[in-house]
Amino acid sequence: MDGHPLEDLLAIARALGWGAAKILRAYYRGEPFQDGTARNLDIQNEKDGPVTAADLAVNSFVLGRLHDLLGDEQFGYLSEETYKSQASAAPFPQDWVWILDPLDGTRDFIDKTGEYAFHLALAYRGRPVLSVVTCPELERQYFATLGGGAFVETPDGKVERLQVSACDRPADLVVVVSRTHRDGRLNALLQKLPCQNQLSVGSVGGKIAALVDRRADLYISLSGKSAPKDWDMAAPELILTEAGGKFTHFSGEPLRYNTGDVNQWGGLMASNGCCHEALCAEAIRILAEIDGLS
């Protein structure tokens, strides 16, 4: 990339992740601003879910820094908090697009479960090549580059390479699930899969963190009236795949980003890769059965 080596962009993204974590934790704890004024969440209930002052503060911090450092000639910027203000739903014309979720798991943030995350990915022609997922309450930041592996770092500077579990018996797999984003169709699918061990974790970033930390082995997303968005999936996807996992549509097709439609419709499966294709096929079969009965 002209003038911007991927290693330099990763260093920028990692610094932004820790900076975002500091802002998010200040809002999470209700710490006052430096002048002593209260740091209120100012929750707004939007159609797609709640938005807080923390979302907006991190969005402004990250996009402001990226614009200052990189400009907008070579890079596009797709963010949960600003995409609706775009003139049209057309894809960004740039080959390189930053995809930002300043606060993934806003409901968990508000409910004080601690299971919220910051996502930042860089996509090239619709596929992620660099990503950061920061989990402030875990004090862990996950990062990856395409072909370069996935790693986790802690505030003291310690960095470890990540590798998903090698569990290859469907009955032994642990499925990470949401507490709230579950409709009847998804519940019916989960009940019929051979893997019945479940772990509840908020935010997609937190769920994929559970996979690369080997606390879980499988995650399924199934759109209904709404669907997860590009910014929910882009950063976690690369971290999982670079740790040896797989993240696809049930059909096996890869996810595509910056298509003009930010929704990731259909069934998506993220796993440690060991039983991925067989479980995708099983999910398709079970859904056909469920939909045939409805």
Rank of each mutant, 00 (worst) to 15 (best):
109 F>L: 10
117 A>I: 02
280 C>F: 11
51 V>I: 12
176 V>Y: 10
191 Q>K: 14
222 L>R: 06
279 L>K: 04
5 P>I: 04
274 C>E: 14
262 V>P: 00
144 A>F: 12
88 S>G: 03
170 P>L: 13
136 P>C: 07
2 D>T: 11
147 G>M: 13
208 I>N: 00
7 E>K: 14
32 P>A: 11
294 S>R: 12
217 D>F: 08
275 C>I: 10
28 Y>N: 05
70 L>P: 07
127 R>W: 07
213 D>P: 00
155 P>S: 13
117 A>T: 10
93 P>I: 05
248 T>I: 00
106 T>G: 11
187 N>V: 05
241 T>V: 15
252 G>S: 11
169 R>M: 09
59 N>F: 02
96 W>G: 01
233 M>E: 03
232 D>M: 03
108 D>H: 09
229 K>D: 10
164 V>I: 13
144 A>H: 12
256 R>D: 04
268 L>A: 03
17 G>S: 06
92 F>I: 07
12 I>L: 15
268 L>I: 15
179 R>M: 02
205 G>N: 09
213 D>E: 15
12 I>V: 15
254 P>M: 07
280 C>G: 10
205 G>R: 10
132 V>P: 04
211 L>F: 08
258 N>R: 05
90 A>C: 05
134 T>W: 03
98 W>S: 13
253 E>P: 00
141 Q>V: 09
119 H>E: 09
164 V>M: 12
164 V>G: 12
7 E>R: 12
242 E>A: 07
199 L>W: 11
46 E>A: 14
53 A>D: 07
151 F>C: 06
151 F>D: 06
211 L>V: 05
181 H>R: 13
235 A>I: 03
117 A>E: 03
110 I>C: 04
258 N>K: 00
51 V>M: 01
233 M>W: 05
80 E>T: 02
18 W>G: 02
271 S>E: 06
206 G>S: 11
260 G>F: 07
277 E>Q: 14
174 V>A: 05
199 L>D: 01
280 C>R: 13
175 V>N: 08
246 K>V: 13
216 A>W: 06
254 P>W: 09
275 C>A: 15
40 N>M: 01
154 T>C: 08
34 Q>G: 07
24 L>K: 04
149 G>M: 12
107 R>C: 06
34 Q>E: 15
158 K>I: 04
26 A>H: 08
89 A>H: 10
3 G>T: 12
154 T>Q: 13
217 D>I: 04
9 L>W: 03
61 F>E: 09
276 H>C: 08
293 L>Q: 11
285 R>C: 06
30 G>P: 00
59 N>D: 15
145 T>H: 05
108 D>E: 15
118 F>P: 02
88 S>F: 08
243 A>N: 06
27 Y>Q: 05
183 D>I: 03
106 T>P: 04
166 A>E: 15
97 V>A: 08
292 G>L: 11
102 P>Y: 01
16 L>W: 02
55 D>K: 01
230 D>P: 00
93 P>N: 11
21 A>N: 13
215 R>E: 15
64 G>L: 09
257 Y>W: 04
24 L>W: 01
91 P>T: 14
4 H>D: 06
285 R>P: 00
162 L>S: 11
